[in-house]
Amino acid sequence: MTVPTPRTNNGAAAGALLRAHRFRAIELIPWILAIAVYFLFPGYRLLATQILVLILFAISLDLIVGYAGIVSLGHAAFFGTGAYTAALLADAGWQEPISALALGAVTAGLLGWVSGWIILRTRELTLLMLTMALGIILYELAKDLDDITGGFDGINFENTAILGLFPFDVLYYTTNYWYAFAFLVLGFLVARTVVHAPFGRSLVGIRENVRRMHAIGTPVQQRMRHVYVIAAMIAGVAGAIWVQVQGNITIGVYEFEMSGNILIMLILGGTGRLYGAFIGVTVFTILENLTETVLGTDPPYWELVVGVALIVTVLFAPRGLLGVFDPLIRRFRERTP
């Protein structure tokens, strides 16, 4: 202890930990692109709005899959619950959109709290099956209660203007785009704050080694339940926006395909990094549209493309498309301490 030891590495590691939450200029890129797309491709605003909402949905999934390591195949349960809350409220006469969306977050969060109590007691395959079961149960329930949910045909509803100023525009998606954009910014900031807080770090600990987490005194189950509720609430907001911008809801919001696709999109972009959601959703959705435009939907070529894209990702970019850049970034950081 008398020999002066080089402190650089300890100091550098501490610096990295202390500064991890700071914004970097590169983080502006997706937002600039999102703003540019609105003006450059007015014909694609519907598609672009969907991408924004799905990014928010994927971010909520990343909190549990990428950070806490809880893989879910039933995340549409929360998306759908938020969506139905907002839609049924509007249908019943509660047409103010933001409060309906907030209530959608609450119902989705409650569902997360209750289902998490059971699901998070289990592990691995059992847990995966239970998340899937929850999604399937809600889908079947919504199908059976079609006099309330509208079933496959759906329900059309109307919302009042946002803040009393900006009416939804289902033809040109002007207001609609910025509505989705604003809540994506908000939801992203919440998620980003949480993952850089000590709470978020402890989620990574759970993902890395549950046994060790117990042994350092972490109430693991409680912590998982908390993130499960946060993720459910954000997914509920995404679901609410998804249907509010369309003025229409069908039981498709509860479909298994919704849960499966959002997980694929997240894996495609890269888990445990928030920005993976941006890349994964965008690439997936554009690829889907291109395939369907060029090859048509009759034989569903798209499913083949998804399959191939997933195999290529898993084999050649196991950390997702964003993960491909990790070695480059590391080299860059090592050169510039």
Binding site: N10, A16, H196, A197, P198, R201, S202, V204, M213
Partner: peptide
């Protein structure tokens, strides 16, 4: 925590012992 740095391994432990690990809003920094 094999994928985390040595310092992060200890940090998680210290944060837990000090009772700050539940903090949702203020960053680690």
């Amino acid at each position: 925590f094999n994928g985390l740095t040595v310092l992060e391994n200890i940090y998680l432990t210290v944060a837990e012992r000090m009772g700050v690990a539940t903090g949702l809003f203020r960053p680690v920094g």
